[in-house]
């Protein structure tokens, strides 16, 4: 089988105008093809009025390229890029809730927190909340280790990723602004 046809995890980074309704326009491109979105994050960028959507999907490269072309077609999308794992730096945040009684048992949880580079962000009479930032593998590892002590609640954020590319968002947008391709000018040729 060609590499293009093997499904694997890709990170999509989509730069958009900050407009309401765009999230829906974006996700229907996936739902129409019955593609599941593994994780999704929307955030502001260093450029005012520009948002960045970061999506993680498991798809074949061939299929995903077609999806990305459809995303680029959306009127309010400035740019869309597909990355595989080694083209980006990325992190996810996980929060774990465990009971104070489990925590106080034998100091094991505290040790796990320390060894995993996690931290305790809240503590009350009944629960403690542990936070761990890392890759999915890392946050999952801590999950497995905490599981025997009883995890009362677990949540993981969408991926945030920054590409290793040299492209600057601001320069990219400047380029779009100065582009001539907004109008058809046959006389230019």
């Amino acid at each position: 089988m060609e590499m293009e046809q093997v499904a694997k995890e890709y990170t999509l980074s989509v730069l958009t105008e900050d407009k309401p309704g765009l999230l829906n326009r974006l996700t229907i491109i996936f739902s129409r093809r019955k593609i599941n979105i593994n994780s999704l994050n929307v955030s502001s960028t260093e450029v005012q009025g520009v948002s960045r959507y970061t999506l993680v999907v498991t798809e074949t490269k061939e299929h995903l390229e077609k999806v990305v072309k459809q995303i680029r077609k959306l009127v309010d999308v400035l740019g869309a890029f597909v990355y595989d794992e080694d083209q980006i730096f990325y992190q996810e945040i996980a929060l774990y809730k465990v009971s104070v009684s489990a925590f106080e048992q034998n100091g094991m949880i505290e040790k796990l927190v320390r060894n995993n580079g996690a931290r305790i962000i809240a503590l009350d009479k009944h629960h403690i909340i542990i936070e761990k930032t890392g890759t999915k593998v890392e946050t999952h590892e801590l999950y497995s280790e905490l599981e025997p002590f009883g995890i009362l609640e677990f949540v993981r954020s969408g991926r945030v990723a920054i590409s290793k590319s040299k492209r600057k968002t601001e320069a990219f947008i400047k380029e779009l602004e100065s582009s001539r391709s907004n109008k058809l000018s046959i006389k230019d040729f």
Binding site: T16, E17, V75, D76, V77, L78, I173, L176, E177, S179, R180, S181, N182, K183, L184, F189
Partner: peptide, 13 residues
């Protein structure tokens, strides 16, 4: 309207 920066309808040949 003559231009929308996020919409480039005529790619350069």
């Amino acid at each position: 309207c003559e231009k929308i920066r996020s919409y480039q309808p005529y790619p350069d040949v």
